[in-house]
């Protein structure tokens, strides 16, 4: 039976924890709004990019065109770009992305392919390192970034392209979490190289004029598209992370509330029991006289 002092301490500590989780929830909510705005603001660009690319790619025969579009003809070395958060305490956000990536790695290894991993974000790196230490080629740390800008994504895209051109890998896939709502984030795998051109876009029939040539435009557009995809993934990830943290902290706050209630009941009961006991002692003492 814990003493009254123990119970009081326990309640106080749970209350302190609740205050922290509550504050974290509110911070996440504020950050979420900003991250969501960022993700939404970036959407038009990515959508227009898709359409323009689809228009251009429709003029290129299958298997022809730049290597970024049609691949380099091999499928032996896979690069997995795993984008996760820099911080924890956001529910299953990081784990679910890592789980998806891990399954992919194991499936590829079972097929006898070589796998390389590029981690964006420390949390994914920490989790993947336990199992795939040898496969991880680099960790990109975005910890110091406050507000994601295109300048943060661009070097990553360029680095990936540089590796591709140097023949370090044949196929690149990007792992991130799509933001649907505060309670729903969908871990997603998206192929970067060879580019997957959004099918289903209405391809305009008009005869385009190109300045300079079509090939030159495609050659500058494709690398940029990689950076844009990375940027979009990072923005979606940022929104997902805050959403996941918000709901995780919300349930943590609620759990703490329940615990406080339970402990308070126990505290009050044992206090009452003690008073009753003392009263009985006094009365029986008086009667004995």
């Amino acid at each position: 039976m814990p003493s009254l002092k123990d119970l009081r301490n326990r309640i106080a500590s749970v209350k302190a924890t609740q205050k922290i989780t509550k504050a974290m929830q509110m911070v996440a909510a504020a950050k979420l709004r900003r991250a969501q705005q960022g993700a939404e603001a970036a959407r038009p660009y990515a959508e227009r990019m898709d359409i323009v690319l689809a228009n251009l790619a429709s003029g290129v025969a299958a298997g022809a065109g730049p290597a970024l579009l049609s691949g380099n003809g091999r499928d032996q070395i896979h690069l997995l770009v795993v984008a996760t958060a820099e911080r924890g305490l956001c529910g299953g956000f990081n784990s679910s992305i890592v789980r998806l990536a891990r399954e992919k790695v194991l499936a590829l290894q079972a097929e006898g392919k070589t796998v390389k991993i590029l981690c964006i974000g420390k949390k994914g790196f920490d989790q993947l390192r336990r199992q795939f230490e040898k496969q991880i080629v680099e960790l990109i740390d975005l910890r110091s970034v406050r507000q994601l800008a295109f300048e943060n994504a661009d070097p990553i895209g360029k680095k990936i392209i540089g590796w591709f051109e140097a023949g370090e890998f044949d196929v690149a896939t990007l792992f991130y979490s799509k933001f649907r709502s505060v309670i729903l984030q969908i871990p997603t795998a998206q192929q970067l190289i060879p580019a997957q051109i959004g099918a289903g876009h209405a391809v305009s029939e008009a005869a385009y004029e190109y300045e300079p040539g079509q090939d030159e435009i495609l050659a500058t557009l494709l690398p940029r598209n990689i950076s844009v995809q990375v940027f979009r993934a990072l923005l979606e990830n940022a929104a997902s992370e805050q959403g996941a943290r918000m709901s995780a902290m919300d349930s943590a706050t609620r759990n703490a509330g329940e615990m406080i209630k339970k402990q308070t009941t126990i505290y009050n009961r044992s206090r009452q029991a003690m008073i009753t006991k003392e009263l009985i002692e006094i009365i029986s003492g008086a009667e004995a006289l």
Partner: peptide, 18 residues
């Protein structure tokens, strides 16, 4: 545009340029 400035008015012919 990369090959010179140009003005776009309504019903301009389809062009794509850097």
């Amino acid at each position: 545009g990369i090959e010179g400035q140009f003005t776009v008015l309504k019903d301009h012919a389809p062009v794509m340029t850097v």
